[in-house]
């Protein structure tokens, strides 16, 4: 069983406030992205003018690589958590750094992809597909930037040695948020690139 931190606040449900708060926040994020994705699906099936660009223009190999990058960052994040649960401070710092690097790598690939699409004529106002593509992946990109900032804050604290085997809740919450961001991309990737 994973090692539960001692400092479970004496909460009625036994779940620390922070974890419950993070899960409730993720529920509202599910609704936010749910609203966006429902609008995309509804308009894509029902709109009279929804031109879908040819598969070559979309750069699927690059996007697949991007998905790999995000999945590996998810794994290194959970390995970081696993390290601190075994009081392995160095393991935590190493894995966190890799996660942050992979996050930046994801953003780098995105920042290459966007201008490439603009040259192809897919811009935010060119047609509905472009509008949805840039709105949703743009918003997801902002969430990735937020996740990276959260992870950097955790990394700085980890280097200062704030986290021990018994006090590592913040690492867990950063992990939850990062996995959610990866989860959203796993849904966005097929509905934009593959269908």
């Amino acid at each position: 069983m994973i090692h539960q931190p001692e400092a479970i606040a004496e909460t009625v449900t036994g779940i620390p406030n922070g974890k419950l708060g993070m899960w409730v926040f993720l529920a509202s994020e599910v609704m936010l992205f749910g609203g966006f994705i429902s609008s995309y699906v509804v308009l894509r099936t029902g709109s009279s003018f929804f031109p879908i660009p040819a598969k070559e223009l979309l750069g699927i190999p690059l996007a697949t690589l991007n998905t790999f990058v995000l999945i590996t960052s998810s794994v290194t994040m959970v390995l970081a958590l696993d390290a601190i649960q075994k009081a392995n401070q160095k393991g935590l710092i190493r894995n966190l750094a890799i996660t942050i690097l992979l996050g930046f790598c994801f953003l780098a690939i995105k920042s290459y992809e966007y201008p490439h699409k603009w040259h192809e004529g897919i811009t935010i106002s060119s047609n509905l597909f472009g509008s949805f593509y840039f709105t949703l992946t743009g918003l997801h990109g902002l969430h990735v930037i937020g996740g990276i900032a959260f992870n950097i804050y955790i990394l700085v604290n980890a280097i200062k040695g704030c986290y021990t085997q018994d006090h590592y809740e913040r690492v867990e919450y950063a992990g939850l948020y990062w996995h959610f961001v990866d989860l959203v991309w796993i849904i966005l990737f097929p509905i934009f690139y593959l269908l």
Binding site: S28, E29, M31, L32, F33, G34, G35, F36, S39, L43, I124, S125, N127, L128, S131, F132, T135, L139
Partner: peptide
């Protein structure tokens, strides 16, 4: 319920500002 209006408000804001046509 609120996040869905947040999504709608962002879509409408882009319609006004970025000439998207949601």
């Amino acid at each position: 319920a609120f996040p869905v209006l947040q999504a709608g408000a962002i879509l409408q804001l882009l319609d006004r500002v970025a000439k998207t046509s949601f």
